[in-house]
Write a protein that binds this DNA or RNA. Structure first.
Length: 797
DNA sequence: AGCACGCCGACT
DNA sequence: GTCGGCGTGCTC
């Protein structure tokens, strides 16, 4: 038999199948297996994507060396999916296969130097062992090693290592009969007290064995006595595999609650259920206002799929994978749930993933990459908050979880449910055209009115304090809530203290040396930080350009507002939540737990606080500046602004108390802000569609973004123009080719970026053409040029 | 991607 | 002569 293998070498030239002879000892090789194969002089990991009887290859096939896992990690479905994705998203098949698996399954490679003669073995450099070449840095040693290699006294061996380790525990089994143990007990010396205790325990608990180490420890039994019995073959140790279970911390406080659905929810659920039963690959767009009970519809649909003997996959944005969310699902489906998100350790992710692969979990809940969960027999896929930009991976492989979900839905003939209060325009337009079926939830499940939203016009308002960040209206409202012991959420879409340093004498703005961005001041760490590449330097007290002391720090960030609030409201307890305060693992949850427990009055944060949080005591939500996202040079700035404001407004008044929302803005008449005030998604959709139509933007056009990067700005520009010419020659009206222009941030990490935007309605040859351009890029790489192609880019300037 | 081969200039 | 720098081509 011959195995078709995709090899772990991410390069254009190796992005194809290599064939290997399967030796007879390897009988049970299946498609999707992870294998080790010889590749040139090296050994590399690879994935079997097909098995055949014959080969076209002219030379002699090499033997496949090893099958790594007992069970093939990839299902045939995932292998097929990887082929489809490689074609459509311009990335190597191996990169796609790797992202389908937990990161511990990436191979580690080592080069080891092994002595070949007795004489060499005794050399000091070997010390009787072989040498890991990665660890050799000493120049003299390197010279000596080269000598040895030359004289054939040593050879290099290539090793492929598997990082994936199962956690095990020691379990002790009995080996003899009860009478034997009793006999042995009698024969003990009188001073063997600990052994006597252990034997007494064995005799008393004979029926309950085996015990694991932790259990034995509880009975205060001596470890050395246990070991003695093991040595005497009276106990046997078995290493039993154990899952690192991340759910335990949530499962304690979960309670089951049965919720009755309202009429709209029931109608939506029935449609979805029908598709589950008919095995129908239909996509539903569940458009439901905040608080309309989408989650309950999801849970009952999942439950229905399980009853029909099918499995279910649910994606949620990383940020809303809160303990609240997980415990809800867990309370419903218990041990059958597997959770995949970035908060897990690598080992936990691997274990959760294996539970899915082995069919032990029937419901998978996870963030973007969970769309590749090796779940079989899928009967339902759900994507919650489907408009979230985080479902698109912004680096290679640039897949969109929604597209992958559609593919899998078709593969399994299972319905896909896209849910949101503010659907992406893309999805909403597809529902309009009948590609998706629209299901609407227009009523709040708890009958509560939507929170009252007030817009504060910053152009004509009085500010509290000396800074121009907080209006008196907002501060008064905060005071009022504080007096009633209620809580407040404040949103400010920028972290740090001030967003740039400006010299009033020479006009100099302090910028990142690697990127084309101004540095942001962070007062707490006394640093100026680049939010793109992380570059930092101390806060200057003189202008680095002209040495003037007349420097000012402009713009507002979370740190500055925190300071202002403390001045205006002495004694107020503020929790700040942004990338800076949540970098440590678990700190996100810590902050939210504190706030939930009422240990703070105000939660002040960036957009990470806008979504999914549910705190009943929050009665005021304030948006400090609604305009931050509005004038980004991006066609979907309005959509993002509307989305953010609507979502954050939904955080107020979630329980008994009614909520209030205050939005500060310099653009009170902008339709995105006015319609967010009314929470009127449908009108926003209609309005924004007209804007998109006039601007030839999605969803009226498909887009493809080609970026050319180089350390040399002129080379990047030159190549970008060359690509544009190729495109113009081959594409036809009404396709629009824009650019090349420097990217919005034209320099990132010392690379200059030029981009070309292709907007098209129908261009059947485009895919092929782009692949050709990519091939061309391969040649150009020698001159330090990189070309990236992004279909459905997340942002376009 | 790595690795080898081959060609070239530089140097003990 | 031999070392090492880089351009080129190959990996079943």
């Amino acid at each position: 038999m011959i195995a078709q293998v995709i090899v772990d070498v991410a390069a254009k030239q190796t992005d194809r199948i290599f064939e290997y002879q399967v030796p007879e000892q390897i009988a049970d090789l299946t498609t999707g297996s992870r294998v080790v194969v010889p590749f040139g002089r090296r050994k590399v990991q690879g994935f079997v994507v097909g098995l055949t009887k014959t080969s076209q290859y002219q030379g002699k096939l090499k033997d496949l060396l090893l099958v790594v896992d007992e069970q093939a990690p990839l299902t045939p479905e995932l292998v097929e999916l990887s082929a489809y994705l490689a074609k459509t998203i311009f990335s190597y098949r191996i990169s796609i296969l790797q992202t389908m698996l937990p990161s511990v399954m990436r191979a580690k490679y080592r080069k080891i130097l092994i002595p070949t003669t007795k004489q060499a073995e005794e050399l000091q450099i070997f010390k009787g062992k072989s040498i890991d070449l990665a660890k050799v840095t000493d120049l003299e040693e390197i010279a000596q090693i080269n000598q040895l290699l030359k004289k054939d006294m040593a050879k290099i061996e290539y090793a492929v290592e598997n990082k994936a380790k199962e956690k095990t525990k020691k379990v002790y089994y009995l080996t003899s009969s009860l009478t034997d143990y009793k006999k042995f007990q009698q024969s003990l010396r009188s001073n063997a007290v600990k052994q006597a205790e252990l034997l007494q325990f064995i005799v008393e608990h004979f029926e309950q064995f085996p015990f694991d180490y932790a259990q034995l420890k509880k009975y205060n039994l001596s470890f050395s006595a246990i070991n003695t019995l093991v040595k005497k073959d009276l106990l046997k140790i078995k290493e039993i595999e154990q899952y690192r279970n991340p759910l335990t911390e949530f499962s304690k406080n979960s309670k089951r609650k049965i919720v009755t659905l309202n009429q709209e929810q029931t109608a939506a659920l029935q449609k979805i259920n029908k598709s589950i039963e008919k095995s129908e690959a239909k996509t539903y767009l569940l458009e439901g206002i905040t608080g309309s009970g989408k989650t309950e519809v999801y849970l009952q649909a999942i439950s229905n799929a399980l009853q029909k003997g099918k499995n279910a996959l649910m994606l949620v944005p990383e940020i809303s994978l809160t303990p609240q969310m997980v415990s809800q699902v867990n309370a419903r489906f218990g041990k059958e749930v597997a959770v995949l998100h970035s908060g897990l350790s690598e080992g936990e992710k691997y274990d959760e993933w294996r539970r899915i692969r082995r069919g032990e979990a029937r419901v998978v809940v996870g963030a973007r990459s969970a769309i590749f969960a090796p779940l079989t027999n899928i009967g339902l896929i759900i994507i919650d908050e489907e408009h979230e930009a985080s479902y698109k991976q912004e680096d290679t492989p640039r897949y969109h979880a929604r597209n992958v979900a559609i593919w899998r839905s078709q593969f399994h003939n299972a319905p896909l449910v896209l849910g949101s209060a503010t659907p992406s325009l893309d999805s909403r337009a597809r529902a309009q055209k009948g590609v998706y079926e629209l299901l609407r939830l227009t009523k709040r499940a708890n009958q509560k009115a939507l929170p009252k939203v007030k817009i504060i016009d910053l152009k004509s308002v009085e500010f509290a304090g000396s800074q121009f960040d907080l209006s008196t209206n907002l501060v008064e409202a905060i005071k009022e809530k504080l007096m009633r012991n209620e809580q407040i959420i404040l949103l400010l879409n920028r972290r740090g203290f001030a967003s740039f340093m400006l010299c009033r004498d020479c006009g100099f703005v302090l910028q990142c040396p690697n990127c084309d961005l101004s540095l942001t001041m962070h007062k707490d760490t006394n640093q100026m930080i680049c939010h793109y590449c992380g570059f930092h330097q101390p806060i200057p007290n003189r202008c680095p350009n002209c040495q003037s002391s007349k420097i000012r720090f402009l713009g507002t960030g979370t740190q500055k507002v925190e300071e202002e609030l403390s001045e205006l409201l002495p004694g107020v307890r503020i929790l700040r939540m942004d990338v800076d305060t949540t970098r440590r693992k678990g700190s996100y949850k810590e902050i939210l737990d504190k706030f939930g427990a009422g240990e703070a009055d105000i939660l002040l944060g960036t957009q990470m606080i806008a979504k999914g949080l549910d705190f009943p005591n929050v009665t005021l939500v304030g948006v400090i500046n609604a305009d931050t996202a509005l004038y980004l040079p991006d066609y979907n700035a309005s959509e993002k602004t509307f989305e953010l404001l609507t979502q954050v407004a939904g955080r107020a008044g979630r329980a008994e108390k009614s909520g209030q929302v205050l939005i500060q803005t310099y653009n009170p008449d902008h339709y995105a802000i006015k319609l967010a005030q009314k929470q009127d998604y449908e009108t926003f959709y209609q309005t924004e569609m007209k804007v998109r139509y006039q601007g030839n933007y999605p969803p009226f056009f498909f887009t493809n973004l080609i970026s050319v990067a180089s350390k040399n700005e002129q080379n990047a520009a030159k190549e970008a123009f060359a690509i544009k010419r190729i495109l113009m020659r081959n594409l036809h009206a009404p396709t629009i080719v824009l650019g090349p222009t420097p990217s919005a941030i034209s320099k990132i990490k010392n690379q200059y970026y030029y981009q070309i935007l292709v907007k098209y309605k129908r261009e059947p040859k485009l895919n092929e053409l782009l692949h050709q351009i990519q091939d061309l890029a391969q040649e150009k790489q020698k001159y330090g040029l990189n070309i990236y192609i992004d279909t459905q880019p997340g942002r376009i300037s």
